[in-house]
Each structure stands twice: as C-alpha cells, then as structure tokens.
Design a protein around this nucleic acid. Structure first.
Length: 276
DNA sequence: CTGGGGACGGGGCCC
DNA sequence: CGGGCCCCGTCCCCA
C-alpha cells in the first residue's frame, strides 16, 4: 500500500486559532463533509491537513517552533490525494491535557518523508525525484535507495533473509528485517526483548505510565502515538469504512475488519477485499 | 456486535 | 551504512 498521507504532528499550540477558543467539546458537524469520491480511500479525508507543516524538522515531541505565518485556510496544497480540512478551527490546546497535546490537524500533518511532485518547488530547493512514483528525496543516495523498493521480487537483485527466508528487493528493508530476528533490547522490568530500541521505549511506558501523547480535543493521553491516532478518529463524526455486504459504516478500519469477521459474513463468501 | 484502547511488529525515510 | 524516528497495521482485551 502506498504511504499516502504521511503525516506529522506538531504541537497544537503551534496553531494559534484566531479569535476566542472554541469549546473543547464542540460537536463535529458539517461543513466537515467528506469531499466525495475520495471517501472510499479510507482515510480521514476531512481532518487531515498539511497546515503548519514544517518539512525541515522531523523530531517528535520537542516543540516545533510556532509558525506565525500559518493561518488556517491559507495553505495551498494541491496534491489530489491530500485531504483538506477545516477541522483545526474546532480545536485548541486544552489545559486538561496532561502532556503535549495534538490537534487533529497537528497530528495528521505530513512528516515530510514522502514528498511528491511539486514539493521541491514549494520548498525552493532542488530535490531528486523518483521517475516511477514521483516521490522526491534530498539526496541522490536516498533516491537510489528508494528505487530499490520498486524492484520486482523476481529481480536478480532480490535477497533472502538467512534466518527465515523472506525475500526482499530492497537491501535496506532486508537489513531492517534481519534485525527483527535479533532481540537485543531487553526490558529491565519484565525481561521482554525487542528488536529495536524505540520498541523498548514504548514498552517501558507501560511500566512507567508515561503518556506523552495527549488529545487536544478531550485531554486524554496515550503512551503510543498510533493509539492517539486511532483515538482521534473516534472524535470524527464520519465513518469512512463501509461494509460491502450490509453497507454499515465504521469510523476505524479495524472496526470494519472486525465486522467482516462477524456474523455479517459468516457462512457467506465475500470475495470483496477487506479494506480499501 | 460495536466501540475503544493497550501493546507491539514491520518497514520506509531522514540525518 | 546505521541509528533514530515515524507511520501503518494488527492483535488482543474489555466495556
């Protein structure tokens, strides 16, 4: 699956809202309507926006410097795959958040790791573009590495993992995969081991109770960014995932997948693909 | 059965 | 090339 809406959160207070702050529990309602046909794509079309995107910084929690030039609605972003949003106007950095809080917009802003055609022009600097998919990279080296991902599994360049035999056409991907067999990062508390240090970091939060990712809408905090993302979707009034059998809709793809496994499809063949 | 959340793995990208 | 960071997705559990 193409990594379409790669997004990066910025601190919500980097997006000062004009005028009085909106109520924290403002109901979600139109005009946050889905932009039509793109809805089937399965993402938060209405609440993803590139507002305030800072392409030159990819740090996580350290606060991104507020961009005084940012003003909701001013941003131009013509990528047809990119969702548009006015959602941020409904959110503010609630005091209830026990930690850094993230508005919907702020959370779903691109992290700049998969830029597309035209991005380099906006940034005013030369970038190296992939002729196959249009993604651009800062260096030819990065582009060369990316191009490996377009190889076929039948390619002579494909290599197999010596441990499990899984084949990879991208050497960096293979290198990363090989690491998954080496669980050298061990939790001092429970002894569980992980292949990568940040997996251990996330695990440690389950012991410490640390929850660095706060929702600016309700103040609820999470230890895991992915879980905050899923939580953000629960604030959406829109359900983008529709069952192809009974047309029931769900806010999260995982709910739809669960539904597919439920009675709706029991005993019936559903050749339609799960997901989008 | 649905909704929500905790935990984690795999893999891509930047520096 | 390797480390670090981040995203997507999934599994599982519970209300």
């Amino acid at each position: 699956m193409p990594r379409r809406f790669l997004v990066k959160k910025l601190k919500a207070d980097a997006f000062p809202l004009a005028g009085a702050p909106a109520p924290p529990y403002a109901p979600l309602e139109p005009p946050y309507a889905l932009p039509g046909p793109a809805a089937g794509d399965g993402y938060l079309q209405h609440c993803l926006a590139p507002a305030g995107y800072n392409p030159d910084k990819k740090q996580g929690l350290p606060p991104a410097p507020p961009d005084p030039a940012y003003a909701p609605g001013q941003e131009e972003y013509s990528d047809p795959e990119s969702p548009q949003s006015t959602f941020s106007a409904r959110y503010f950095n609630g005091e209830a958040a026990v930690t850094d809080s993230y508005s919907m917009d702020a959370f779903f802003i691109t992290d700049g790791r998969s830029r597309r055609r035209g991005e380099s022009q906006r940034r005013g600097s030369h970038r190296h573009s992939c002729p196959e998919c249009g993604k651009t990279y800062a260096t030819s080296s990065n582009l060369s590495r990316h191009k490996q991902t377009h190889r076929s599994l039948d390619s002579k360049m494909a290599r197999k993992c010596p441990t499990c035999g899984k084949a990879y056409v991208s050497m960096p991907a293979l290198a990363m995969h090989v690491l998954t067999h080496n669980l050298k990062h061990k939790c001092d508390v429970c002894g569980k081991a992980f292949s990568r240090p940040w997996l251990l970091q996330g695990h440690m939060r389950s012991h410490t109770g640390e929850k660095p990712f706060g929702c600016s809408h309700c103040g609820k905090a999470f230890a895991d960014r992915s879980n905050l993302r899923a939580h953000m979707q629960t604030h959406s009034a829109f359900k983008h995932y529709k069952c192809k059998q009974c047309e029931k809709t769900f806010a999260l793809k995982s709910y739809l997948n669960k539904h597919y496994e439920s009675a709706c499809f029991k005993g019936s063949e559903h050749s339609c693909a799960i997901g989008n």
